[in-house]
Simulated assay, not measured.
Amino acid sequence: MSGRGRDAIDAFLAMLAAERGAAANTIAAYRRDLEASDAVTGNIAAATREDMVRLAHEWRDLAPSSLARKSSALRQFFGFLVDEGWRDDDPSPALPKPKARRPLPRVLDHEEVGRLFVVAEEEAGEGRPEAVRMLALLELLYGSGLRATELVSLPLNAVPRDAPFLTITGKGGQQRMVPVSQRARAALSAWLRVRPHGGRFLFPSRDKHLGRVRLFQILRGLAGRAGLDPAKVSPHVLRHAFATHLLEGGADLRVLQTLLGHADIATTQIYTHVDAARLVALVNRRHPLANN
C-alpha cells in the first residue's frame, strides 16, 4: 500500500472514530474496503475518475448491498479528503449508484416465541445451569431487545438491584437504558444463584464472556427442541420480534428508537411495515367517517 494512501485512510478512520463514534466493526469494514481499493488504484488518495471506473469494473459481480457499501465508503472518504484539503476534486461521482433495497426483518409471531419460552422454562425448571442461563438470555433478547454483542458482553455489575433497568453500551460506545421486566429479573436472579463464581461478565465463559457464535448455536438448539426451524431463529430475529410486538401493542416509534439504540429514526421505521394491519384497523375504527 502506498504511504500516502495509508496515511489518508488512517486519518479518515480516526475521524470516524472520534467525531462520529463509529463502532470498531464499522471501522474495520471501512478499512478493508479502502485498502482493497488502494491495492487496485495504487494510491487511493490520488485516485482519478478513471480509477473509479476501474473499481466499478472490479466490483461488477458483487451483490447490490456489497456494491452500495463499498461505494458509500469511498464517497465518504473522498468527501473527507476534500474537506481536509488533501485534494481539490472528488472523483466519486464516477462510482456506481446501486439501489440496494434493505431487506425486511424476519419476525417470529407470538405463538412461535411462546414455544421457545415453554421449552426454555421447562428446561430451566430442571435446575441445570446451562438451561437456567438459556432462559435468562432469552428473556433479555426478547424482553429488552438487546443486540447479541450487547447481551454477551454485559458486565456482572449491570444487573439492576433496585431500578428495573440495564445500562447498555451499544454501537459507537453510546449508552442507553433498557427496561428489565419482572420475568427477566426473576430469570436473572435464578441465573446468579447457579452462575460460576469469578469473572466480571454476567455470562462468563472460561476467562472471558460467552461468544456471539455460541449464543447463536444454543439459541438455534432451543429452536429445534421447540419444533421451530433453527434457521429462522437468531438473536437478531428475537430483537426484531421485540420491536415488532411492541409496535403491535401501541408503542411510539420514538420510544422504540430509544430502546433499540438506533441513532437514526429511519432505521427504526423498517419495523412499521409489519404493523400495517393494526394501522388500517385503527383508521377504520377511529376515523370520524368510519361509521358513516
Rank of each mutant, 00 (worst) to 15 (best):
D61K: 11
A124E: 10
F80W: 08
E150F: 06
K70S: 10
G143T: 02
P160W: 03
A46G: 12
R69M: 09
L116I: 02
R102P: 01
L166K: 09
S72D: 03
P98C: 10
V118A: 15
L156E: 12
P164A: 05
L137P: 05
R60C: 08
M52N: 03
L154W: 05
D162N: 09
E122Q: 15
N157I: 05
R60D: 13
K171L: 06
S153H: 05
G127A: 08
E150H: 04
D89L: 03
V152D: 07
E130N: 11
G85I: 10
D90P: 12
A46R: 14
L138R: 04
E58F: 00
D83A: 15
A56Y: 06
S144N: 07
L55Q: 08
D90W: 09
R161V: 14
L116Y: 02
P160K: 06
A47T: 03
R115E: 14
Q76K: 13
R102Q: 15
V118N: 02
A63M: 05
A124F: 07
T167Q: 14
K171P: 02
R101G: 15
S66C: 04
R75K: 15
V107W: 01
F117I: 05
G145K: 03
F117N: 04
A120E: 05
Q174I: 05
L67R: 14
E84S: 14
V152L: 06
L138Q: 02
A100E: 06
L116Q: 03
G114H: 12
G127E: 10
E123D: 15
D88K: 13
F165W: 15
P103M: 07
R49I: 02
F77A: 07
F80Q: 04
L141P: 03
Q175M: 14
V159E: 08
E50H: 04
K99Y: 07
R128G: 11
L67E: 10
G125M: 12
D51R: 07
W86V: 11
L55E: 07
L137C: 09
A136W: 08
T169C: 07
R54G: 08
S153I: 00
M52K: 04
L116D: 00
K99S: 14
A158H: 08
G145P: 10
